[in-house]
Design a protein around this nucleic acid. Sequence first.
DNA 1: GCTAACTTGTGAACGAATTCACAAGCCCCC
DNA 2: GGGGGCTTGTGAATTCGTTCACAAGTTAGC
Lengths: 207, 207
Amino acid sequence: MKRIADSTVRRLSLYLRFLEDFEQRGLETISSDELAQRGGTTSAQVRKDLSFFGSFGKRGLGYSVPELSRRIREIIGLGREWRVIIVGAGKIGAALAQYQGFAQRGFHIVAVYDSSPEKIGRSWNSQTIRDIRQLEHDTAREKPDIAVLTVPSEAAQAMLDRIVKAGIKAVLNFAPVQLQAPPDVTVKSVNMAMELEGLSFALTNRD
Amino acid sequence: MKRIADSTVRRLSLYLRFLEDFEQRGLETISSDELAQRGGTTSAQVRKDLSFFGSFGKRGLGYSVPELSRRIREIIGLGREWRVIIVGAGKIGAALAQYQGFAQRGFHIVAVYDSSPEKIGRSWNSQTIRDIRQLEHDTAREKPDIAVLTVPSEAAQAMLDRIVKAGIKAVLNFAPVQLQAPPDVTVKSVNMAMELEGLSFALTNRD
DNA sequence: GCTAACTTGTGAACGAATTCACAAGCCCCC
DNA sequence: GGGGGCTTGTGAATTCGTTCACAAGTTAGC
């Protein structure tokens, strides 16, 4: 299959959100233009994005909301449940663990780890915080799909190495550092500091 | 000035982090290639990024770590303190409010707002949570530069409109929705759901 | 069944961002 | 002080992503 741009996948994700909204309101069809307006893009972009995966619309009419919805979910891989572990039970980990949006989309938190003796054993939103030393052992048995990494920057690379070695192929990193991983492991980073600096730049370099 | 790509600014932010690291370790000079390797890019990319703003290096030698560091800080606009307000005192807001990385980079949280009577008045990491109804009044007086938006999705657009009307020109949004703002207002979004779906896509569409 | 009004799907044109490739400059050592 | 070994800065080439533009298909109304 032709390589799909990251930006395309992000937009699909966005379209899906609108489609679910439309679905709930009982709307039957939607045009690429309506989708584009809500997503802040163009109708050509929407059609191009979808065309990488097939042709889902009807000329003259638009797209069937339930069908397109289903198709995008399928493309993104939301048809199944994903098993997620959270590594690092700090403030961000806490916020994530109880964030409802995850479960809704099929991302189920199956374990939470930390290294601090005060935290290990404490209960946390229906999860007991486990000792990080169990990571490899648990992973071999429970086969999580995705690791969310919320440890301090200094520890992030070493922990990623352990996660990779344990066989997990997808990581969402919250530490504000650049991580190195083998090519068969996908790492996405959420870097608030970087976003803030983007704002700083925008405020500083106005015309 | 020529328009600078978003990706360029993000990389500058990244380089700066490495430079600060080098600075602390007392290193004097660094080459574009070393910077590139840590940042997961190429030396040509590094040099091109910098060349938009001037020529800071010495041929044959590389870049002076302290000087380049200073220059990038200047470019990004980190020479001054930015006044930040947090709108929405939920779990994510809490995690952000106590995140030390912000203050280190000159982003100072000057106020936290919420609409819930149980939260208003409570103290929170050296800030008292204020009534959201004060937003316009406070903003006129305290002139914050940046608003961090951590309210539920349903409330996000309406709150953004208020923030914009109050005269704030930069917003960091954590609600997983697409927001509309006038062109003179910069909005950056951190969307964890979207990143997770990116991972789902990557796991699903392996070769 | 024909026409008018729409909307999709997609090659082609365009534009933006990255990579290439090399001249120009600097340092060190002999 | 001249040569060899580096490294920058930058036009040119290339790759990648977006937008244009239009043929082809669909629906509705008459």
